[in-house]
Simulated assay, not measured.
Amino acid sequence: MVSLPAILTPHAVTVRRLTGEGAHGPVHAGPVTLRRVRVEATTRLVRDRTGAETTSTARLFTRPEHGPVPPGSLVLLDEGTALERWATVISAAHQYTPPAPEHYDHALT
Rank of each mutant, 00 (worst) to 15 (best):
Thr55Glu: 15
Thr55Leu: 15
Ser56Asp: 14
Ser56Lys: 11
Thr57Ile: 13
Thr57Asp: 15
Thr57Phe: 14
Ala58Tyr: 15
Ala58Met: 12
Arg59Asp: 15
Arg59Gly: 08
Arg59Thr: 15
Leu60Gly: 10
Leu60Tyr: 13
Phe61Thr: 12
Phe61Ser: 11
Phe61Lys: 10
Phe61Gly: 02
Thr62Gln: 10
Thr62Lys: 04
Thr62Cys: 08
Thr62Trp: 14
Arg63Gly: 14
Arg63Tyr: 14
Pro64Arg: 05
Pro64Asn: 10
Glu65His: 11
Glu65Phe: 10
His66Asp: 15
His66Tyr: 12
His66Ile: 07
His66Ala: 13
Gly67Tyr: 13
Gly67Arg: 06
Pro68Met: 10
Pro68Arg: 08
Val69Arg: 05
Val69Gly: 05
Val69Leu: 08
Pro70Glu: 11
Pro70Phe: 06
Pro70Ser: 02
Pro70Asn: 01
Pro70His: 03
Pro70Tyr: 07
Pro71Leu: 08
Pro71His: 08
Pro71Gln: 06
Pro71Asp: 12
Pro71Ile: 03
Gly72Ile: 06
Gly72Ala: 07
Ser73Val: 03
Ser73Gln: 07
Leu74Phe: 04
Leu74Gln: 13
Leu74Lys: 06
Leu74Val: 01
Leu74Ser: 10
Val75Lys: 02
Val75Arg: 03
Val75Pro: 04
Val75Asp: 11
Val75Glu: 10
Leu77Phe: 10
Leu77Pro: 03
Leu77Tyr: 09
Asp78Cys: 01
Asp78Leu: 02
Glu79Gly: 02
Glu79His: 04
Gly80Thr: 03
Gly80Asn: 02
Gly80Tyr: 11
Thr81Gly: 02
Thr81Val: 02
Thr81Arg: 04
Ala82Phe: 08
Ala82Val: 07
Leu83Glu: 13
Glu84Phe: 01
Arg85Trp: 09
Arg85Tyr: 07
Trp86Phe: 03
Trp86Thr: 05
Trp86Gln: 07
Ala87His: 09
Ala87Lys: 05
Ala87Tyr: 11
Val89Phe: 13
Ile90His: 04
Ile90Arg: 02
Ile90Lys: 01
Ser91Phe: 04
Ser91Cys: 03
Ser91Gln: 05
Ala92Val: 02
Ala93Arg: 02
His94Trp: 14
His94Leu: 09
His94Gly: 05
His94Gln: 09
Gln95Cys: 06
Tyr96Cys: 01
